[in-house]
């Protein structure tokens, strides 16, 4: 599935989208709320799924070169987070689905 499919299927709200990401496939995914766990990850071009709605999510995403952050549980990012996403070149999405369902939707 591509990021475009992900956005459509999960009815994501798009806060920032890097143009080249849309047609890329979702390959490496990590889901969780503890950022230290994300920092252990070695994969690149990650999709990070989290319910944590804070600037630390984008700091962490940038440190591990993640491509996209998907906020779950209908979280709406604040303006500084959107700004960081733009600066770091990390796409920022949000879905109303909980994390479990968001993960499931990608696997299918």
């Amino acid at each position: 599935m591509t990021f475009k499919d992900l956005i459509e299927k999960n009815k994501c709200r798009v806060f920032h989208l890097e143009s080249e990401l849309e047609n890329q496939k979702v390959v490496n995914v990590i889901a969780g709320d503890l950022m230290s766990e994300v920092l252990v990850e070695d994969e690149e071009n990650l999709l990070l799924i989290t319910s944590l709605n804070s600037e630390q999510v984008l700091n962490t995403a940038n440190i591990v070169d993640a491509a996209c952050v998907l906020l779950v549980n209908g979280k709406t990012p604040q303006a500084p987070m959107i700004k960081m996403a733009e600066n770091f070149g990390i796409s920022l999405l949000s879905t109303d689905l909980p994390m479990f369902e968001a993960c499931k939707s990608i696997e299918n």
Partner: peptide, 17 residues
């Protein structure tokens, strides 16, 4: 701290790793 996504006891081990 945990509600901010930290405090999982991974900080120092991660830096060392």
């Amino acid at each position: 701290v945990r509600s901010l996504g930290f405090g999982a006891g991974m900080g120092l081990p991660n830096s060392k790793r």
